[in-house]
Amino acid sequence: MIIAERKPMEEIKQAMAPYKKVLVAGCGTCVTVCWVGGEKEVEILASQLRLARSAEGNEIVTLEATVERQCEKEMVTELKDKVAEVEAVLSLACGAGVQTMAELFEDKPIFPAVNTTFIGMPEKEGLWVEMCGACGDCFLDRTGGICPIVRCAKGLLNGPCGGTRKGGKCEIDPEKDCAWVLIYRRLEKQGRLDLMREYNPPKNFRAVKRPGRIQAVKI
């Protein structure tokens, strides 16, 4: 799923400074699961904003709404009436959600309240780690199901760099595992180390022609 992080409060407060009535809009999918932009976070952020503004003697009115997926026009359309009432929208969705909102309500300024960071999974409760770089040319079958594109700090395709720390940790962060050591261990366990000895040629970084656009076949 898509992982995001809330922006610093100061940045949000500054963005909202010119407005008296805003819609704080959450998304019920990825950002809900990573505790950043769901219903609960919407009501907390709205309350924080009201408290901050009331302490400044400059009250702000907040509407709150969370749609199931902010990246789908049909679902965002539900917010039409609420958006009509406000001067601006503060969206807690990922970048795709913010843009869907902006496209549907072209006359309203839409502000992101979160920074979209990566595609990941929860390693344990409350800890999310990056897993996929959406490169458009998946070769996880060759790397024991561990993606070196994003899990190696340098995205190397043919083995670890010379900077691996003792015990197989990453050059840039002793908290993180060297992806290539993980790949080695996984393939060793599977008796498939020959795969690691095979040369991986330079990657086709244009596998997805940016900006990406895929037409599925309707069945």
């Binding site: 409060m9 407060k13 907390i44 924080q48 904003l49 408290l51 901050a52 302490a55």
Partner: peptide, 8 residues
Amino acid sequence: MLLKEVEV
């Protein structure tokens, strides 16, 4: 923490 964040 939330209250500190909004300097209330």
